[in-house]
Amino acid sequence: MADATGPDGLPIVVSGTDVVAGDTRVLAAIDLRIVAHRRTFILGPNGAGKSTLLRLLHGLVAPTRGSVTWGGRAMRPVRQAMVFQRPVLLRRSAAANLRHALALAGVRGKEATRRIAEALSSVGIEAIADRPARVLSGGEQQRLALARAWALAPEVLFLDEPTASLDPTAARAVEGIVHDIGARGTTIVMTTHQLAQARRLADDVVVLSAGRVAEHTQAVEFFRHPASEEGRQFLEGERL
């Protein structure tokens, strides 16, 4: 379901970028290139700056130094979506949450209704379309957040540890949905500290350590021979 006019918010290019919050340098000297149709996983221990890097790529955080461009432009493109670790749901029904996001993207009326139905059934929650979003279970809430992103048919989807607060069953369901969205041609950038998840889903891996990119390699390569010391330690940590 890639856009007919081709990706225009890609590649995302980060060059020489620092992000400073207060007096802490959260990200330092980042150079990164996210290309179309790949599932890129940002790995690293807690506090490495994964969430900030994701927000930088999405345009929610401005670089203190350096630059971020999307398809060569400094303007953050519209056709991106993000799913947060704790889903932000409006105090409305599940379907109304989708309708709100679609309206902001300029999709209304019958087209909106069609996309809402399609997205809800894609994540398997069409039965609860009219239930208030905020009384759903944690797993249902995260699936709803994914459906909402799905309905927007974004060029790039960012996911910030979407399974971190879910039980294993719900987490596997979410992984399946992420896989399906990627299979449609949507470029995916996701943070996680679960190596197993990256092993199952990632095309590319970015290892982040203390605010710096330690390595950016293809997943297959990474799991076989991590190029960086940090990557190796991270992999060994899993074996322990």
Binding site: H58, L60, M82, F84, V88, A101, L104
Partner: peptide, 15 residues
Amino acid sequence: EYREYLHSLGSGWFR
């Protein structure tokens, strides 16, 4: 609670 999500959607000040 909503700020990041609304920014993420590109929702302007008025909306």
